[in-house]
């Protein structure tokens, strides 16, 4: 494969061998190397230090660094499994792997549950869902009266909270999303199937023999 040595790729904080990352995820070695090109691009948008900070992550999502967004922040925090406040390359690949079209459905269900369990109690509570609805309204042109929001919450919890204890546990969430599969649409990124096409320059920086890939 590629034979142009990359400059200091191994000097990136948290850089991990593509072969090692490919073995842990759905990605091939070539796909991991292509993701490194994406990682570098996002991670150098504000401060070029070889990691992705929250500002850079939000900028990549919104193309506007001033935007604060509850959901983008929540996804960043879930990607940041080591709670360092920044994403290194390994964090980035292992988190994106869950969004691969071929990743296990169960992983997608668990990740989406954590996404909505804002305070990490192991339950999605009504107040959390209301907060997220209000955040959504804040970022869109949509306006809803409080009584309409409450009616939406009533309907949602009637359907999802099957034991009617006022909160949704993982088992209830599992059943709910299987009945409402569109809720998992955000958990799959078709782009990840074509990542090597999207970032073909990875070939020029590859450090891995074609045979290993």
């Amino acid at each position: 494969m590629g034979c142009v040595p990359s400059k200091g790729r191994r000097q990136f904080p948290g850089y991990e061998d593509p072969v090692f990352l490919a073995a842990q995820t759905t990605f091939s070695v070539s796909e991991v190397e292509a993701l490194f090109e994406l990682f570098k691009s996002i991670g150098s948008s504000v401060i070029d230090e070889g990691i992705i900070n929250k500002e850079e992550f939000v900028l990549a999502l919104f193309k506007n660094r001033k935007k604060e967004n509850l959901f983008a922040s929540r996804i960043f925090d879930l990607f940041d499994v080591k709670h360092k406040g920044v994403l290194d390359f390994g964090d980035f690949v292992r988190a994106l792997h869950i969004f691969h079209p071929s990743a296990p459905l169960e992983d997608k269900i668990v990740f989406s549950f954590k996404l909505y369990d804002l305070d990490n109690t192991g339950f999605i509570e009504r107040q959390e869902v209301k907060l997220m609805l209000l955040a959504l309204l804040g970022e869109s042109e949509m306006k809803l009266a409080d009584e309409t929001i409450e009616a939406i919450l009533d309907k949602t919890f009637l359907e999802a909270d099957t034991n009617q204890d006022g909160k949704i546990d993982l088992s209830e969430w599992h059943s709910f999303v299987l009945k409402n599969p569109s809720l998992l649409r955000i958990m799959t990124l078709p782009y990840l199937r074509d990542i090597t096409t999207a970032f073909p320059s990875f070939v020029f920086y590859s450090e891995v023999d074609e045979a290993a890939a």
């Binding site: 994406l38 967004n69 994106l96 990124l189």
Partner: peptide, 26 residues
């Protein structure tokens, strides 16, 4: 669809902040 016909999570999932495909747009 009118919001009342959707559940809360269907609405929330429309947030741009949950749309990671934007990461791949150059």
């Amino acid at each position: 669809a009118a919001p009342l016909t959707m559940n809360a999570f269907e609405l929330i999932s429309k947030s741009q902040g949950l749309n990671l495909s934007s990461l791949f747009e150059k």
